[in-house]
């Protein structure tokens, strides 16, 4: 692992550093943040100063504090969503690829139906019916997202399923579960991990978008998307406070993508001359 890191190109190291920075902020939020998450400590939309490094927001809360806490809320939820959607999507994809026939058809068409709705509208609909709470948010986004994971996994697994070594396992009399775990999963890992990185970013942006529309995390909880929305008005007055949380989103997205790129590069074994 350490050796692998040593070989990593500069871009990947930068990406890893960004992710690390965010994780540190996430874990040590109460220690790092100079003020409380919802504490109103200054004037509305105060510019940067010694007391408030990134200024204050529309209610006079410290922006830096909010961004640090925002990392905690947003990233934790994103991670849960990504893990859940991958679990559901991969399982579905592998089952479809190994069982084939009507199971594949049924799963495939179900996914088609879900995918036929624009995701944002579907999420808005479900969330306004069921109501917004963190578990509901996680499940809804995870299920919407798992459709894409399903498609990728199924395609990758289908490719592996036809290889002779899977046939060998079948001839040996192995069950589907064993074949999925020992023959197909290890061979489909590189594209899936890469996809995980990308999906992570999309989920992240999606939650931000929902928060921006008022259906994501509810105030006064700090989350980056919500913070952009709440402070958006400031732009018209020439105050760049909303750019800070927007920047945080972009920053982490770029970081994750740099690492994913490195991984993709590794797994396709293309060596840069």
């Amino acid at each position: 692992m350490f050796k692998l890191l040593k070989q990593a190109p500069l871009s990947a190291r930068v990406g890893l550093f960004i992710i690390l920075l965010n994780v540190v902020a996430m874990i040590f939020a109460p220690v790092i943040a100079p003020y409380g998450e919802t504490e109103m400590v200054g004037e509305v939309w105060a510019p940067s100063s010694k007391a408030h490094w990134l200024g204050t927001d529309q209610l006079g809360r410290d922006m830096f504090t909010r961004i640090v806490y925002g990392a905690r809320n947003t990233i934790a939820i994103t991670l849960c969503v990504a893990l859940l959607s991958f679990f559901v999507g991969c399982l579905g994809g592998f089952v479809a690829a190994t069982k084939k026939g009507w199971v594949d058809q049924a799963l495939g068409r179900m996914v088609d139906i879900v995918m036929a709705f624009p995701t944002l509208i579907f999420a808005l609909m479900v969330l306004s019916i069921v109501g917004t709470s963190i578990p509901v948010l996680i499940v809804v986004i995870a299920i919407l997202d798992s459709t894409r994971v399903f498609r990728l996994t199924r395609a990758v697994a289908m490719d592996i399923e036809v290889q002779d070594f899977v046939e060998v396992a079948r001839l040996r009399g192995e069950g589907n579960w064993w074949i999925m775990r020992h023959e197909i999963l290890p061979n489909s890992l590189p594209p899936l991990v890469a996809e995980f990185g990308l999906r992570f970013c999309f989920v992240f942006l999606f939650i931000s978008a929902l928060s921006f529309l008022g259906l994501g995390l509810q105030p006064p909880m700090a989350d980056w998307g919500g913070m952009v929305r709440e402070n958006a008005g400031a732009i018209t007055f020439g105050i760049f406070t909303p750019l800070w949380p927007a920047g945080a989103i972009a920053f982490l997205t770029i970081g994750v993508n740099l690492v994913v790129d490195w991984f993709l590069h590794q797994s396709s074994q293309i060596r840069r001359q």
Binding site: F165, V168, P186, N187
Partner: peptide, 19 residues
């Protein structure tokens, strides 16, 4: 199954590359 075994044409794809 045990008593009939098979050997394939392409050894490259008949062995799981991750095992």
């Amino acid at each position: 199954l045990q008593r009939i075994q098979m050997i394939y044409q392409m050894p490259d794809v008949a062995l799981n590359p991750r095992q």
